[in-house]
Design a protein around this nucleic acid. Structure first.
Length: 502
RNA sequence: CGGGGAGUAGCGCAGCCUGGUAGCGCGCCUGCUUUGGGAGCAGGAUGUCGUCGGUUCAAAUCCGGCCUCCCCGACCA
């Protein structure tokens, strides 16, 4: 058992912090609500960035960059938008030692400044669609922060598109939603529900907000991504107009969508255990850690020699030789397993730590596979493969230490992780039709509650005051099944998911 | 922003009530022995006691302001 990690059972919030600390994902910054993303945490973000970026480009989007500072007056141009964001904006009032004529808001999101630019770039239907994404930091002055889940500054991507018709904008919104779903499930191995937000939970200024929602191990819901159909709201506020095929002036239809470093929090809370971080192989910066075991100098020579041969067999002489020239290779030798995804197999050659230390070290950092090679293995031509997820230990022939073998193990790991998530979600999803039972459930338990519900701001506020639960998403606004609203008892065809959210 | 808890060596903590030259465990450094699940012995280094101010001959300790973190609320992409 890891001695530096509080078990989930004992104190879940403390466990979360302990896992982050033990895995060295992040550290607190000397500014309230801000964090430093340390190399391992950042490598995970880079992996998320790399994969999603490819998906966006595959769909036809390109990246651009807009300013961090937004003139304060821009925010006010969309009534709901300013109402939603003004309370959490950081505002710059001075620059260069002088008071600014107009204060500058540090972007909490970029709809306004991008809308302003789109108004200048878009004149004709021939200019549409505009499909731009930006990778950026944003600032939202949060009262209560949590590492990765909610910090005052965070990293994200925000896509902003403009279209000729309402249909196209809606299609774009749903296309991105599906992109997020596939990414969350296939890459992060976190099962997500997909649906629309109710008016109460909608993005300020959006016509429709769609989301992917995951269930964490403590039964709380986590919003992992949103895709907004902005209708013509921002186009009207910023006068994004174009002359159509019919020679009439019309406002463009815009969308925006984003995921953030919060996804790292989702990864931690969905997969990790009392021994520390667990990462899906498709995201893990290090796929396998090779731990040499030896006592004497002769054994050291034998074991390290054997490992070198194994690594050459796995990755080729060129890569192994290159890794030996990298700085620090006498400590932890980093060999590229996949240069495109920047994923490594490492050899932990530190002589200051003993094998047991190394086992815990890499386990806590979420490395999916551990390879042990000792004198006994060298003699028998075998090696040990330990699986981080199910803790199984396989003794395999050295000849089987191949890409095909490792890939198969990593694929099985990825699948097992996702299947475990599906099982957990199934166990923690309940259909409840009666409001008394509904309240009783949330008094004691956490999880997704599926029910019929006729959304309204008032009803949702009342339910929240009773239970702290909110509508996480509308599963189906027009169900084939006919039910009764869990709150009012009236007939309903709207199926929703309630949960207590992070 | 309201309620509760905390801040002393890298980490975890004691000391504070009852002011009087700052301690323990782990980690770290050196050496030897070790090494297949967190090693043993010996020696050693490390602190503006979160910060600013007040009381006092004297403050980690008493008083006040502020900062930061954690938990529970409120708020919230």
């Amino acid at each position: 058992m890891a001695r530096n990690i509080t078990p989930r059972e004992k104190d879940y919030p403390q466990w979360y912090i302990d896992v982050i600390t033990a895995a060295e994902l992040a550290d607190y910054a000397p500014v309230r609500g801000c964090m430093v993303i340390k190399p391992l945490g950042y490598a995970i973000w880079e992996a998320i960035h790399r994969d999603l970026d490819g998906r966006f480009k595959e769909l036809g989007h390109t990246n651009a960059y807009f300013p961090l500072f937004i003139p304060e007056s821009f925010l006010s141009k969309e009534a709901e938008h300013v109402e939603g964001f003004a309370p959490e904006c950081a505002v710059v009032t001075h620059g260069g030692g002088e008071k600014l004529e107009e204060p500058l808001v540090i972007r909490p999101t970029s709809e306004t400044i991008i809308g302003h630019m789109y108004a200048q770039w878009i004149h004709s239907w021939r200019d549409l669609p505009v499909l731009i994404n930006q990778w950026a930091n944003v600032v939202r002055w949060e009262k209560r922060t949590r590492l990765f889940l909610r910090t005052s500054e965070f990293l994200w991507q925000e896509g902003h598109t403009a279209h000729e018709t309402a249909e196209e904008a809606r299609e774009e919104t749903l296309r991105i939603l599906e992109c997020y779903r596939a990414f969350a499930e296939d890459v992060l191995a976190v099962p997500v529900l997909v649906g629309e937000k109710t008016e109460a939970e909608r993005f300020p200024g959006a016509a429709h907000t769609w989301c992917i929602e995951g269930l964490m191990q403590d039964g709380k819901a986590l919003q992992m991504g949103t895709s907004h159909d902005l209708g013509q709201n921002f186009a009207k506020a910023f006068e994004i107009r174009f002359e159509g095929r019919n020679q009439q002036l019309d406002h463009a239809w815009t969308t925006s969508w984003g995921v953030s470093t919060r996804l790292i929090g989702a990864l931690i809370m969905a997969h990790s255990d009392d021994d520390g971080l667990v990462l899906p192989p498709r995201i893990a910066p290090t796929l396998a850690a090779v731990v040499p075991i030896f006592k004497t100098d002769e054994e050291k020579e034998l074991v390290l020699g054997t490992i070198r041969k194994l690594m050459v067999g796995l990755l080729g002489e060129e890569e192994v030789a290159a890794s030996e020239n990298r700085i620090g290779n006498d400590q932890v030798q980093k060999c590229f397993y996949n240069r495109l995804t920047e994923q490594y197999v490492i050899v932990d050659k530190r002589e200051t730590a003993r094998p047991g230390d190394k086992f815990y070290h890499w386990e806590q950092r979420g490395v999916p596979l551990r390879i042990e090679v000792g004198p006994r293995d060298c003699a028998s031509g075998k090696l040990v493969v330990k699986n981080r997820l199910d803790r199984s230990k396989d003794v395999i022939d050295a000849a089987d230490f191949t890409r095909a073998n490792l890939d198969a193990r990593l694929d099985a790991f990825q699948k097992a992780l996702f299947d475990r998530g599906l099982e957990r979600r199934a166990e923690n999803t309940h259909e409840i039709g009666d409001y008394k039972a509904f309240c009783k459930f949330f008094k004691k338990k956490r999880g997704f509650v599926r029910c019929f519900f006729n959304p309204s701001k008032e009803a949702e506020a009342t339910v929240k005051s009773h239970t702290r639960a909110t509508v996480r998403l509308v599963l189906n606004a027009n169900s084939d099944r006919e039910g009764t609203c869990v709150f009012t008892g009236e007939p309903s065809r709207t199926e929703v998911i309630f949960g207590i959210a992070y």
